[in-house]
Design a protein around this nucleic acid. Structure first.
Lengths: 144, 144
DNA sequence: TATGAAACCGTCCACGT
DNA sequence: ACGTGGACGGTTTCATA
């Protein structure tokens, strides 16, 4: 990981479909050199994936909410398997504090949100916060 | 937005660098047709961006934490400007409940986390939860 | 949306540093 | 170990219908 690799990572975080050619021009090295570096960054696990980022409200998912959930340590394996299968859950983190799980979720309606929360109660108590707005969208980390 | 567009969005969410050729083969239409569809999806705002997803622990950002913060309504503009300039904040949501903001953050050490929390206190009281593990990584929404 | 042609881009290889 | 330049093969785009 040197200076050029960091720049590649910054560029690709900002635009995951940037062509090798464009990168080679921005970095003043040739295309094969860029190609090799990216390959290594992928192989060494620096780059986990490339993703298109959608505007979910455009496909009717207008409700975004964070749900905190109490899950006993013994029920974690069961819970993980369950939660991975629910498409509305975009992220799930195991955290410190009285609620052990934090879920980031999206729904078409508050009714759908309510349905999931009701389901989740079989694992433990919940605490739900609905999102009004997102001043900082999930973004990359600029490396310097 | 028809069936083919949905499939394109699903494919690109899973692999943002998928070539037009590969997509055209998967969808049984020609490459120019795919190209035009993607262009429209971008223009109409369905696709907001393409991003490389990094393993942040690989670059020393081992601490991930959610910080809840009380911000008075009158100080929101000031807060938004401030928070956008901090690279450690990957996401910021304005939410319901006693704490009006939820921040997703990453740091090299708990010391750095402590420093930011101390800074944030000029806006209001905070509540911090450190992440132990992330069973569901920030993922796309599979459209059906 | 399909077709073919042209332009473009990415990869491979041999070589040099 | 890393970068370069040329050549090849594959991909995207354009014009046309």
């Amino acid at each position: 990981m040197n200076d050029i690799d960091q720049k590649i990572l910054n560029y690709l975080q900002a635009n995951g479909r940037l062509s090798i050619k464009k990168l080679s021009e921005a970095l003043f090295i040739t295309a094969p050199a860029v190609s090799q570096r990216i390959k290594k960054l992928e192989e060494n696990g620096y780059i986990k994936s490339y993703n298109a980022n959608l505007d979910l409200t455009k496909i009717g998912l207008n409700i975004k909410a964070f749900i905190q959930l109490e899950v006993g340590p013994d029920r974690k394996p069961e819970f993980y398997k369950y939660i991975k299968a629910i498409p509305n859950v975009l992220e799930c983190d195991c955290i410190t504090g009285p609620y052990s799980m934090l879920l980031k979720t999206v729904f078409e309606s508050t009714q759908d949100l309510d349905d999931l929360v009701t389901e989740l109660h079989r694992f433990g108590s919940t605490n739900t916060q609905i999102v009004f707005s997102t001043p900082v969208q999930d973004r990359g980390y600029y490396i310097e």
